[in-house]
């Protein structure tokens, strides 16, 4: 599994993460999916910022505004793309999925293979690292980011 992220998209996501710090931010990833030789390659084409409704705990929780999700799906359809994943930040925490991330993703995907979950570790100095994860059979495994 590979997520291809053009530089501009990486910048856009990271900028969002930095602007939001120390709050968690989230957004939707639009793009295309290719399956060369049975592999899954998601190519990121556009980033759609979304609101975080977890206002009471926004420093360590996110709840992506469903209206933004719907708008992202609209945008994807208009561009001939699809939703290929979501991203969120971990302010001052490593960019590995938390148990909360896992449980919430499992609610959506069950035993199925999920889309990309990009997580960025963000500190006062900016985004220090970022990784992408895919839930399969209820467990997250890391996928390669080509940037």
């Amino acid at each position: 599994m590979t997520l291809v992220v053009p530089k501009a998209m990486a910048r856009s996501m990271k900028a969002h993460g930095c602007e939001g710090y120390p709050e968690e931010v989230c957004g939707v990833l639009l793009g295309r999916i290719r399956r060369p030789r049975g592999m899954t390659v998601r190519e990121l084409v556009a980033v759609h910022r979304a609101g975080n409704l977890a206002q009471d705990r926004s420093s360590d929780r996110y709840l992506l505004d469903p209206v933004d999700y719907l708008n992202a799906e609209d945008e994807a359809r208009n561009l001939g793309l699809e939703v290929i994943g979501v991203y969120h930040t971990h302010p001052d925490h490593p960019c590995a999925p938390s148990e909360t991330d896992r449980q919430q993703a499992e609610q959506i995907w069950g035993e199925l293979e999920s889309w990309s979950y990009v997580i960025m570790e963000v500190t006062a100095d900016g985004v220090s690292s970022w990784r992408s994860w895919v839930l399969r059979g209820g467990r997250f495994s890391e996928e390669e980011i080509q940037s």
Binding site: D60, Y62, H90, A96, S98, T100, I108
Partner: peptide, 14 residues
């Protein structure tokens, strides 16, 4: 009618 999954998560309670 739109069905929207709740997309949520959070940083670990470190």
């Amino acid at each position: 009618v739109s069905i929207v999954p709740a997309i949520a998560g959070g940083a670990p309670d470190w």
